[in-house]
Amino acid sequence: MKSASSDTSSILSRAAVKSNIKLNASNFILGLVPERALPGPRPGQFFMFGIDSRKDPLLRRPFCYFRKEDGAIQILYRVVGRVTTLMTGLRAGETVEILGPLGNGYPDFLGSKAEEAGNGKGKTPLVIAGGVGLASVYPLLAGLDGRAHLFYGERTGASLLLVDELRRLSGQVTLATEDGSAGFKGTAAEAAKVFLKGRDKKDFTLYACGPNGMLKAASALGVDGYIASEEKMACGVGVCLGCAVKTAGGFKRACKDGPVFKIGEALFD
């Protein structure tokens, strides 16, 4: 008899671990090869990732699309809790589950739709990354053809990731560290604020991902653009209403209505 649950979804897949590369003590890049082709993904979209079908950990975790390399979808993850700790133990050949790509990515930033997105050729993309928020904006940099000015902040210089690569992908890179051990002393958003002083803000389009405090600061720079929010999610598909983002029009869902929001739409306390 045909099973009722024959999978009709095109975005749910088991995936083989291809690589799990350690960048430093707490940051890794996981390469996954889905058992079947998944559409996209676009910069700013995400996947719900589950280690296996056990009941503990119970929920999948959201990770944004980082890049494609050697036929694998890669996610950049930071070890912050139980699931990410378990992820560090994944070895090539093991099978995991992914659901995605999900959510609205950054709007088209090249080609005909770019003008509508307020990102015409005359504008310089300013990209602000706070911590592991780098993972979300990374695929943008490649698409922006070396035009972007990246502001990338971490607590300390030793935590900065992939700096040589970022310099290759971006027109200009400003590093920022809270302890001043590398680059600008302060946050990435503060570095961007200093840069913008005396410049016409209409000449830029902003893309930012990082902790809410950083997104608040980025939203206050006075530059039009987009932020990608980070919220805890249970389902990732719009039914749990867990990933609430405050907007002028009430709470919206980071997973379905975002995670990318126009600057000024998402409000941060």
């Binding site: 009941k55 503990d56 950990p57 119970l58 929920l59 919220e231 805890k232 999610m233 249970a234 749990c240 209403l241 867990g242 990933c243 609430a244 983002v245 405050k246 009430g250 709470f251 306390d269």
Partner: peptide, 22 residues
């Protein structure tokens, strides 16, 4: 409107939600 975030957290073999009936 429902409750402000964070609204969910995973606990052993379960989760706690405070969506607030949005």
């Amino acid at each position: 409107q429902g409750n402000p975030p964070p609204r969910i957290t995973e606990t052993p073999c379960g989760m706690i939600n405070s969506i607030g009936l949005q």
